[in-house]
Simulated assay, not measured.
Amino acid sequence: MISEDSHASQDARQPAANPGDANAPVVRVRDLRKTFQPRGLLKSAEPVVAVDGVSFELPAGSTLAVVGESGSGKTTLARMIMGVETPTGGSVEFFGRPQPRRLRTRDRRAHARVIQMVFQNPYRSLDPRQSVGAAVDEVLRLHFGLGRHDARARTAELFDLVRLSPTLLDALPRELSGGQRQRVCIARALATDPRAIVLDEAVAALDVLVQAQVLNLLADVQEETNVSYLFVTHDLAVVRQIADNVLVMQSGRVVEYGRAEEVLDHPEHPYTRLLRDSVPRPGWKPARRPTDDNPAIPA
């Protein structure tokens, strides 16, 4: 006899049903805008335009990097796609179907089956009192109704997918390294079988070696699951390693958008060239600031 939990476990391995046209891009953003109205003592100040007319498409199994300096609007853009921020104008579509301007509670579970998010700081994303296995188990129970045994088995599979030993299922977040904690967060994001994952500076807090390991892991997961990534970052070295396409934002607007190798090797916009030229190269030394004892800076 096959138990209901076994049926649920099998269902958990299946991708979420597409909410619209399966041939359409996973995500399509059209003329998306976000304006923040000042409040309190600043109520008379001018509105702040955080995102101004952004459009792009994210096909299945591809990676789009959104780059720009702090304050460029890239995180606000990601939050609107996730349904956390309400757009002032424009639209977000998933498989050709518009996302409601405000997600109701009953819509959020279906939305989570399509898109998930991984944040920069994995320690803040995990409950320090909860084992990392339980952090994934609870997602499986919520979305698929798995029993304890089958949720545990599926969590072990997800840990294996992100190259974590199942022996770590009962560990607390503080007992893991930063790279291991971020892998747990990736496993938790994958638990709903999403069609896209937003990664907001997801490797910025890791050292260079661990960054490379996590990026290689993400590439392997994408090849196996065909999930799409929206990679929010300021690091052009990361963009070159993982992205198919890149969108460059400055002051809330898109200044350049195209194939990653073209944008990085032959940037057309001065801002993109500035970002590229700001990446330290071998032999780079920081400029010395003048002091009272040494007012001149050697050429």
Rank of each mutant, 00 (worst) to 15 (best):
T75D: 02
S72A: 11
V136H: 03
P59M: 05
Q99R: 11
L164A: 04
V48K: 15
D207E: 04
S251Y: 15
V246L: 03
V221L: 05
T272Y: 09
R154D: 08
R13P: 00
L161D: 07
A12I: 09
D52P: 14
R109K: 14
F144Q: 02
Q250F: 15
R28S: 15
N23P: 04
F144E: 00
G252L: 15
L164Y: 02
D127T: 08
P298H: 10
L169S: 09
A205V: 02
E224V: 04
R101V: 03
T225Y: 05
R28Q: 15
T86D: 04
A202V: 07
E201A: 07
G71W: 04
R288K: 06
G178L: 11
V238E: 03
A202S: 15
S228E: 12
S228R: 10
P47N: 11
M82P: 10
V210S: 05
F119S: 06
D200Y: 02
H234S: 10
E46Q: 13
S55H: 12
V214A: 02
T35P: 14
A135H: 02
D265S: 12
V238K: 05
D127L: 13
V84T: 06
K74M: 09
N226K: 13
M249G: 02
D21W: 11
E69N: 06
D200C: 03
R276L: 07
Q14P: 00
H269R: 07
G20H: 07
S131Y: 03
R154E: 10
V279M: 12
N245T: 06
L230M: 13
P98S: 03
A112W: 09
A151N: 09
T272D: 02
T167W: 01
G90Y: 13
V66L: 09
G258T: 00
P173I: 03
L199S: 04
A8S: 13
H143P: 02
N121R: 08
L140N: 01
R102D: 10
L42S: 10
H269M: 12
D277E: 15
L140T: 00
V67A: 06
R259C: 02
H266S: 09
D235Y: 04
L274S: 10
L218A: 06
A204E: 01
Q116F: 13
G73H: 11
P47L: 12
R141S: 01
Y271D: 05
N245D: 13
D220T: 08
R188W: 14
Q116K: 10
K43E: 15
N18C: 15
A196E: 02
